[in-house]
């Protein structure tokens, strides 16, 4: 059981970076960005491709981050310059990335067994198991990224991106090019997601062409769990709650699997959870109307 939980935490910490990326598009910019599914796989593909080709794992991760930013830029350009709806722009990039990822990998999957990943030095230095080294590095990266993002969204550029998601009219009236802020937000988001993918592939010792499928839904599930359970008013805690949400999601999944749910049903389970969570406000509203009309009945 302990092993299961540790595994879940380690996975959650790597997906935390992905969840932060989803937060930037979904909550800050107000865009459901499907690029995520492609850029997560691309991060894995680039890192695995670099490492299996004999390159350094760090170089692999760095290229993955850049590649993710480029993918986000592609979606941003399609959306802002060509005026394609955001959702469709993301889907287009996602589909394009499928072919690109296949080219990067050269096969449907790459094994990283017995290769030197970014986790190897940590493992050696601390003398821990792989899982613990993933937790260690994952936690350091997550906290670092939360801090950097907190700083960034407090800067002039970051504030402009936040305002763009709330009211693009106002932002343009204040002399800010909303095309730029949207593209920038998408680039940062997908760079984070690709970074996450590059670490995930190294933690699980393989990259798979399909590993991004459903990633956006997992990201959203983590985001909502984070907001409901840990979401605070302060921006820093809100960012931190994304990481905690990702970990909680993984623990829930681990427990559900442990309780005997077949792993084939995982995606269905996640989809239903997200659909329910997203419809919570509507349910609350219905509940309120119901209560009101009942009270009126009673008064009559």
């Amino acid at each position: 059981m302990e092993q299961v939980l540790l595994g879940a935490v380690s996975q959650g910490l790597l997906w935390a970076m992905m969840t932060l990326g989803v937060y930037i598009t979904y909550r800050v910019l107000g865009i459901a960005d499907m690029t995520a599914e492609g850029s997560l796989t691309m991060g894995a593909a680039v890192a695995a491709g670099t490492i299996s080709g004999g390159g350094s794992a760090y170089v692999g991760v760095a290229i993955a981050v850049l590649a993710g930013a480029l993918a986000g830029m592609m979606t941003g350009l399609l959306h802002t310059k060509l005026r394609i709806p955001a959702l469709l722009s993301g889907i287009l990039t996602m589909i394009a990335l499928y072919s690109i990822n296949l080219r990067i990998m050269g096969a449907a999957n790459i094994s990283l067994l017995r290769k030197i990943t970014v986790f190897a030095p940590v493992q050696e230095l601390m003398g821990t198991s792989k899982t613990l080294s993933v937790i260690l590095l994952g936690a350091v990266c997550s906290i670092l990224l939360v801090t950097v993002l907190y700083w960034f969204f407090g800067t002039e550029i970051g504030s402009a991106i936040r305002a763009t998601g709330t009211n693009p009219h106002m932002v343009r009236a204040q002399g800010i090019n909303t095309d730029t802020t949207i593209i920038l937000g998408l680039m940062i988001s997908n760079a984070l997601i690709s970074f996450s993918g590059s670490l995930i592939s190294q933690a699980q010792n393989f990259a798979d062409l399909q590993m991004g499928t459903g990633a956006i839904v997992i990201g959203l599930a983590s985001l909502i769990i984070g907001e409901v359970l840990f979401g605070q008013r302060h921006f820093y805690t809100r960012l931190l709650s994304m990481a905690l949400g990702a970990i909680t999601y993984r623990i829930i999944i681990a427990l559900v699997l442990k309780m005997g749910m077949p792993s084939d049903d995982l995606k269905l389970f996640t989809a239903i959870t997200v659909a329910l969570a997203l419809s919570l406000p509507r349910f609350r509203e219905l509940g309120r109307t119901l209560k009101k009309s009942l009270r009126r009945e009673g008064a009559r």
């Binding site: 960034f152 407090g154 800067t155 002039e156 550029i157 970051g158 504030s159 402009a160 936040r162 305002a163 998601g165 709330t166 009211n167 009219h169 106002m170 932002v171 009236a173 204040q174 002399g175 800010i176």
Partner: peptide, 28 residues
């Protein structure tokens, strides 16, 4: 239309204060 609802009063003013200037990585 004229303000960002999710942001603070002072944050909105700060956005307007910088109208016409290049946005940088200085604190907002």
């Amino acid at each position: 239309m004229g303000t960002a609802a999710d942001m603070g009063i002072q944050e909105n003013l700060a956005l307007a204060w910088r109208r016409g200037n290049r946005r940088t990585l200085r604190w907002g």
